[in-house]
């Protein structure tokens, strides 16, 4: 694009073209990063179920640290790799970044509470993590869906929030729920919240790209 004088019509055309061009970024990198976190959460969930079957010991819970332990370096690495260093931020990006940053800090706080309080004999503190994983993350996902106008994230987040409240209600009412069932709900929620919406959006983007070509 050269630095040349233009007619008013061409001016309007340039504006329209550039607005269109900067809108074309339903960002795949963000989808991939969320898929990585969700996959890690799901795989760790399966590992915890398996370890619980083999050896029902409290140290099995330490397996959950695999999520931040593996996820954080992968997140940083991928975030740096994508887009070949291109950076563009919209208001929506900033809102999303804020939501997930806040969630990260809450996760750290919840993890510390869940690790420390059982040492004092409060064995049901893990319920807090169920609440966080299903209700808080579900709510954040639904909000993200509203912000980026993606109904699949809204539906997935809503599904997770409902599962989360149902499980917490059962626990509060002292209705026995097997930890295996809770883990299955947890895995389902992460599938529906992140993997399914990302797969649908990816397919849509790919077919849109094919149509263009």
């Amino acid at each position: 694009m050269e630095e040349k004088k233009i007619t008013p019509e061409e001016g309007m055309q340039v504006i329209t073209q550039m607005i269109e061009a900067s809108k074309q970024r339903m960002s795949m990198p963000n989808l991939r990063i969320s898929i990585i976190w969700a996959t890690l959460a799901i795989v760790t969930g399966f590992i915890v179920i398996a370890l619980n079957k083999v050896e029902n010991l409290p140290w099995v819970s330490l397996a959950w640290f695999a999520i931040p332990g593996v996820g954080l370096p992968m997140h940083i690495n991928l975030a740096n790799k994508f887009d070949n260093g291109k950076v563009v931020k919209t208001t929506i990006d900033n809102i999303n970044e804020g939501i997930w940053k806040a969630l990260g800090y809450i996760a750290i706080g919840v993890t510390v509470i869940c690790c420390l309080m059982p040492l004092d004999g409060y064995s049901k503190t893990w319920m807090l993590m169920v609440f966080y994983d299903l209700v808080v993350v579900g709510f954040a996902t639904a909000i993200q869906g509203i912000v980026i106008k993606q109904k699949y994230y809204i539906a997935g987040g809503g599904f997770s929030v409902i599962w989360g409240f149902a499980i917490v209600a059962l626990i509060i009412c002292d209705i026995p729920v097997s930890i295996d069932y809770i883990m299955v709900f947890y895995i389902q929620a992460f599938l529906v919240m992140f993997i399914v919406p990302a797969a649908i959006i990816r397919n849509k983007l790919n077919s849109r790209q094919k149509c263009k070509n």
């Binding site: 694009m1 050269e2 630095e3 040349k4 004088k5 233009i6 061409e10 001016g11 340039v14 504006i15 073209q17 550039m18 607005i19 061009a21 900067s22 809108k23 260093g85 291109k86 950076v87 563009v88 931020k89 919209t90 208001t91 990006d93 900033n94």
Partner: peptide
């Protein structure tokens, strides 16, 4: 009213920041 400057401004009006 120049093609490239207008293009840049149009993009920047649509995003918070761009590199």
């Amino acid at each position: 009213h120049s093609q490239l400057r207008l293009a840049v401004m149009s993009i920047l009006m649509n995003v918070e920041e761009a590199d």
